[in-house]
Computed example of a mutant assay.
Amino acid sequence: MDFNSFSKFIKSLANDAFPVLGDSFSKDDFVTINLSETNTFLNSVDVSSSAKLSEFVSNHIQNQNGKVAYGGYLEVRNIYKRSKHFNSQALTERNIHIGLDLWCDAETSIFSPLNGEVHSFKNNTNFGDYGPTIILKHCYKSEVFYTLYGHLSLQSIANLKVGMPVVKGELMAVLGDASVNGDYPPHLHFQIIKDIQGCVGDYPGVSSKADVEFYKSNCPDPKLLFGL
């Protein structure tokens, strides 16, 4: 299945998908946020500080009369400059975000949007990394794909086993805070992955410019699944 067909396939599942933050939020509760290098309002924010960035995000949500800020797919972000995890070599700097971020309170419940099973899980402890992460495997209409949930709490991965079934709408995790989630304001990194490429408990969520065309084809815009 090529990129366009896979994107259409993911979009076709939207009516069947359960909201990843649950059904207690309405669409009016979601507001967009721009954390890209083009947002000049971020020039006055120390984005290397999770506390300062959290204050910026919280104020944005409040000013927009929302409860959850979302966005980030294919954003070029300066925030990753703080971590060697994304900048081991200047020529391969990774600063293009390839998932969807949902910024909300720590301990917010995370639900499985589709039926599936636990593919893998891991606490990715590099500075600026995902922290506790779950990857689910899904099989729909003979198509196999994966969804990734990053920046969770430690308890979220404490009792998991590979192959455990997960039912659509099932409470599967809660969000972690900056002490465990890679030092970010609380948020969910959600990503759809066509080919998991042998990865276990982890998959790149930030791309270099050189690799972004591949990741765009392998990881379509998650908003297709949620109708955002």
Rank of each mutant, 00 (worst) to 15 (best):
Y184M: 03
L175F: 10
S83W: 12
L224R: 10
L224A: 04
A69D: 12
G227H: 09
E213A: 08
V68Q: 12
S36K: 04
L74M: 13
D177M: 09
Y130P: 06
K122H: 15
L175P: 05
F226Q: 03
L21A: 05
S88H: 01
N4H: 10
L42G: 08
L100A: 12
G22A: 11
L171Q: 08
I134V: 15
G131L: 10
S217G: 01
N4C: 03
S44Q: 03
N4F: 12
F3N: 04
G22L: 06
S24Q: 10
L74T: 09
S50N: 13
D211Y: 00
H189C: 13
F6Q: 04
P19E: 05
W103K: 01
M1W: 05
E213P: 00
K216H: 02
K84T: 08
F86V: 04
P165N: 14
A90Y: 06
G198C: 08
T108W: 10
H138P: 03
V144T: 15
V174Y: 07
A178S: 15
E107M: 04
I96M: 01
L21P: 05
K27Y: 09
S179C: 02
Q197G: 00
P185C: 09
I33L: 12
M172A: 13
Y184N: 03
E107N: 12
F190D: 09
G22Q: 08
E75Q: 15
V162A: 14
F111Y: 15
N115A: 07
K11S: 13
V180K: 14
S58M: 03
C139Y: 15
T125S: 14
D183M: 03
F121V: 06
E117A: 12
V144E: 15
P113I: 00
D23Q: 01
T40H: 08
S48I: 02
F145Y: 06
S156N: 08
G128P: 05
S109C: 07
S26G: 07
I61M: 11
G128F: 04
N115G: 06
Y140E: 13
H189K: 11
Y184A: 05
K122V: 02
D202F: 13
I110P: 13
Y73S: 04
S153D: 13
V47R: 11
P165G: 10
D16R: 08
L91S: 05
N87F: 03
V162Y: 11
F25K: 01
